[in-house]
Every structure is written in C-alpha cells, then in structure tokens.
Design a protein around this nucleic acid. Structure first.
Lengths: 199, 199, 199, 199
DNA sequence: CATGAATGAGCTTTCATTCAT
DNA sequence: CATGAATGAAAGCTCATTCAT
C-alpha cells in the first residue's frame, strides 16, 4: 500500500519552490533553467515533474508564495499604534534590509506582469489585498488624527504601494547611493504627504 | 562607384532597432527572438548581423537610444518658469500618455539591470545624467522660492526619479484604476514634498 | 533506486566516440556535423550533450582515444627479439593493412594540429610518449648490435615517427602504386638507415 | 566599348589567389571564409565572384598554383652535378626555411585529398609529375655512380616524395626539436638509402 | 568593374519535457 | 518515489552565394 504522506509531499513542494526562488533571483524567470532548479533542490528533473506540471506553474506558485509571505508580514507590521510612524519605519526598513521578505524579485515580477496575463492576475490580486490592508490602516490613522483625513484611503494606499516599488529602483539606478541621506529625504516625502496639514 | 551611403546604413539600423523595440515590449528582452525581430523588420536573420554584432548589442543600442530620447525630452520639459508646476504637469503627463517616449520598457530595463552588469551600467549612466538635470532644475526652483530650500537637490532628484518608476507600476498593479483620482493624490504627494513649508 | 550505472554511461560515450570517428574519417573534423554524428550514433542532438560538452570535446577525446590505442598497439609490437626485423615488419604492416588501428585520421590530426593549439598539445604529448617507446627499443637494438650505435636513439625515434607519417601519404599521392615494390624499397631505406655499418 | 584587359584580369586573379593562400595557411580550407579572403585581397565579396565561380574553385586553383610553383622550383633545384649532394641539400633546406615555396599547406592538402576526389586528383597529377622529375634526376645520378643503381628510380622517387611529407610533421610532433641534430640524422638516412653500396 | 545589401540553409548548442526503469 | 536517459523544437549565429545598383 503506497500511502502518499501529504505532509511530506507539501514539504517537498515548498523545498522546490524555495530552490526555484533562489535561482530566479540569480537569473530571472526566463534565465533560470529547470536543470539549475533541480540542482539547487537536489532532485532529478524527472522527479520535479511529480510535483509541478511545468516551469510556468513553478513560477506562478513561487510568486504567489512570496507575495503571500509579504502580505502576512505586512499584516503584522501594520498594527502599530502610530500609523505614520509605522509607515516611516517601514520605508527605512525597506531601504536598509533590502534582502528580507522576498522583495528581490519585485521588479522582475512587475516586468513579467507587463506581458504575461497570468502573472498580471497574480500581481493584481495581491495588490488588491495589500491595498485593502493599507487602506484600513490609513483609515485607522485618520480616525486617530495621524493621517490627513482629506486623502482617499484606497487611492492613497495604491499610491503608497507603487511608491514602494520606486524604493526598489533607487539602488539600481544609483549603486553608490548614500542610504542615510535618502532615508531622510524619503521620510520627509512620506511624512509631508500623509500628515494632516497643520492648523 | 562610391556607393556605401552611410545614411541608408544608419537608417536601416534605426529601422531594426525600432522593430527590435516593438518585439522587446511584447516579449521582453529574453523572450523576443532574433527571428521575430527579423520578421518585424522584414529582413533575413543573416542580414541582421550585417548591422549588429549580436542580440546583446541590439538590446544595448536600443536601450541607449530610448534612454537618450527620454533624456532629451526631459531636457526640454524641464525649463518651465514654475518649477513645481512643471513637475506636477510631468506627473500628470506620465499618467495620461503612458505610451509615448519609450517608457514602456522602463520596468524591463530595471529588472534586466538587476542581473546584467552591462545593462546596469547603461541605466546607471543615464540615471546619473537625469539626476543632474533634475537637480539643476530643483536648484532653480529653490532660488525662485518654488521648492523647499532644505531639500538636498541631488538626493531629491534621485528620489523623484525612482518615484517616477513607481508611477509605471500603478496601472500594472491596478488595471481598473481611476486615473483622475490617482493624479489628484499624486499631485498632493509631490506638491507637499517639494513646496517650501509655509512660514 | 541506485541506478546511474556508470558502466552504461561509459559504453554510450564510447559508442558516440566511435560514431564520431567514422564521421570524421569521412568528412574531416570541421566537415563532420553534430547532426551527422548523432545520426551515426542514433541519438538525438540534445542527448549528445549529456555525454560531451562540445564538438571540440568530442574531437579531443576521440583523438586521444585513437592515439592511446596506437600507443598500446605499438607497445606490444615493439618487443620482438630482433629490433630491426620488427621495425621492417611494422613498415610492411603499415603498408598492407592501412585501415586498422585508427590510422586513417593521422594526416587530419596533424593538419589540425597545425592551427589548433589544443590538438597540437595532444599530438605533442602522444608523440613524445611514442618517441620514448621507440627510443628504448632502438637502444635495445643497439645493445644487441642490431642497430647502428652511432645513431642518437631519441632523434632517430623522432625521425622514424615522422617518416611513418610519410607512409600514409604514399597511396594518397599514387593510388595505382605497386605496394609490393614500395615495401621492398622502403625496407631497403629503413634497413640501410638503421643497420650497423659493415665493419 | 568595354575592353577587358586580360592581363589585368589575370593579375587580379593571382592577387586573390595569394590572399586566399594566406587565409588558408592561417585557418585551413574550411576555416577560412570568403569574407576573410575578400578582406585580405581588399575586394568585395560580390567582386570575388567575378573572378572565381566558388570557394571550391579558389581552393583548387590556389593549390594548383602552389604545386606548380613547387614543381618549377624543384625543376631548377634538380640539376646539380652531384645528385646525392643536391638531395641532401634539399632536405636541409626543407628543415631550415620551412616557410618558403608554399609548403605550409602540404599537410592540409593531403588531408583534404583523403576525402575530396577533386583535390585527390590534383595531388595525384602533381605527384606524378614530381615523381617523373625526381626519377629522371635519380637516373642521372645512377649513370654517374652517385646513386645506387639497384634502386628502381620511379618507386624510389615516390618514396622520397612521401618521406619529404614526413619532414613537415617533424616540428608538428616536436616543437622543441633540435633542428641541427635532426638534419644530421636525416642526412644519414637519405645518404645511406641512396648511395651505392661500398665495394 | 565594383560594391555591399540581402538571402536562407545550416551550424552548434540549449532546454522544457517525457519515458523507461 | 526517484532517476537520468532521451527527445526535438527552437535558439543565436555563420557563411557561401546572389542581386540591385
């Protein structure tokens, strides 16, 4: 009796997705090969197709997993008492620990979404969920007088999300950039944008 | 006998670069094939190599040409009398005519720069030039009291450039987005960021 | 589970090398194509690269294998009691069974060595080993009074090796050549060259 | 009236053949490209086909020209008073000025003849002519008592020709070879082979 | 005579995927 | 479950040759 242990199966899938993630970060979605993913995951190519139907499926699942991780992480981050301070801390964290929560692939994912409808849909759904989270958080801030009540929470959430994409391109465009100075200016930007106008 | 005609040669090169550009927008740098570029340019694969040494060379020249076009366009845009108003108009233009000055490839170029040193160098040099332009413009605005004099012009220029990358991801993340509302919020963002604080 | 079977792998490599050898004999190193080698070996082009990294690698391994076979064959041949008689028998064998021990490619290999440093190195090392074998054999003959003691064994070995290249060109230059007569003259040549002068 | 100056035409052909020769020496028959020959001859590819029907035709004419040059050179060399001394001097010359009379391609030509019937025919005809020349010369030597009268002149001529091919492989097989020592041994070889037996 | 633009078949190599074991 | 042998359809690129001017 061949009992397929569903837990082990799921574990293996996760291992492969992790390995694939490392390869995609190094080489991009198209540049990474099934062979390299197999080498990284220490399995044979034939075996990989036991777990995933195609390279495309791996990419999609991997991206979903990373986006979900981001959203979960985000959900936790987003319950500080001081809404604006929390956001500013998030900007700073994004600039200093650039390598953490699966953010290395953000630009690749967005580029891919520009021409691959499946990827576009994934990004869209995740963005929509994130916007809702951020929007709620902003509303809380508005209720507490920490965020300008004139700003439409949902639209503002979308703008914040896309501006955070911009954070990822700063160091691509300027490898010798002075992180501290940029954080300072970025904090001014977000603070002035979001804070309620004085008087 | 003295044929050669370097003008025709240059014209053909430009035609091929244009065709390549269209293919890259559709499929990405890696996804577009030499065959597809040749079909688009209506030449044979062999002939393409009369004009370019490799696919890589085509990508690089095409990207440089587009970035230069952007920089030129930018140079013209950036001499309005009212610096802040000019920037806000630029934000609005970027949101409404998203398809004009070779901007469709921005995210692809940045993604490619993340793992291709040659592309990284091209992006870096162009970004450096753009930052210098924007920085000069901001300084002018500061002299005229239109821009907050406390902001470091060069750092702020870099931040503006990267935030403008974010503009490109807005519609990727939210295809049903209300452009007018977003423009309104974005104008608030940039205006509050850059305007001199009220005394 | 522990399949792998390095023996089968090695067997397949040998099969491919043999097939490649037949193609190279027919068409030369540059004239033979990967496709023709695959057809001869009855495998797909993709599969060939499971076993060899490149066409160049196939050429080199194949040449090395043939040269080693020659050297082994040579080592056995070269232990007759009568040194001079053994050499003369070798000349005769070389003229009569021209097609056996992988000698069909000798001239191609030497031509290739003239412009390919990797091939030059392979030929050089093999030649050096063969010269050492022949030299030892000649010294034995000198000790036994069968070979002229005045001849420098190493230099003479090199000369014999290169003269044996000449044997391969005889029939190329003269397809209607009378083998028997040529053997007779060649035996005179080598005998007079090597035999101790009559007191 | 377009008068085709046949002398100029012939001159141009010769120039192209010379250029082709240099390319073939550097890269081999298959390795040299029409483009490289055109560059070397400073003409355009289209123009080259005014003078030659195909690459194959260039190769054949070039080889014929070189072989004829060799034969002419040979004809002159071969009328010394002392036949054996002339041959030994030829051996020495062949070892010291390896780059003179178009001999750099000998091995390539022979390799090509092994699989290309057209080339085989060319080599064959030239070899036949050379054998006749050498044979005549040997006969003269026999008449003068300088060459062993027992040797069949025609067969011996063929053997000498092929042994001279071997001279070309000496330095291919042993790049650090001591030319002086080899010349010495080679002279012994040819002298003992050809000289009339004492008493 | 002379150019170089243009062709297209064919080259080596890669890679997602399937299959026998 | 797991392997790696095997496939075959491209991919980027080369090059002898032809053609319009």
């Amino acid at each position: 009796m061949r009992t397929v242990d569903p837990i082990k199966h799921e574990e293996k899938r996760r291992e492969i997705l992790d390995a694939a993630g490392r390869c995609f970060v190094r080489k991009g979605f198209q540049g990474a090969t099934i062979a390299s993913i197999c080498a990284e995951a220490k399995i044979s190519p034939g075996h990989l197709y036991h777990y995933f139907a195609s390279k495309e499926a791996i990419i999609q699942e991997m991206v979903k997993a990373r986006l979900n991780a981001t959203a979960r992480f985000f959900g936790k981050a987003v319950d500080g008492a001081d809404v604006l301070a929390t956001i500013l801390a998030g900007v700073e964290a994004s600039m200093t620990d650039a390598k953490n929560i699966g953010q290395e692939m953000r630009i690749d994912m967005l580029a891919e979404a520009g021409r691959n409808p499946d990827m576009a849909k994934i990004i869209e759904e995740n963005s929509s969920a994130l916007r809702a989270q951020i929007s709620d958080f902003l509303r809380k801030g508005q209720a507490r007088g920490q965020i300008d009540p004139e700003l439409d929470p949902m639209v503002t959430a979308g703008v914040l999300l896309s501006m955070s994409d911009g954070l990822k391109t700063l160091s691509l465009r300027n490898p010798t950039l002075d992180v501290a100075k940029n954080i300072q200016v970025l904090k001014i930007l977000f603070a002035r944008f979001l804070a309620p106008p004085k008087s």
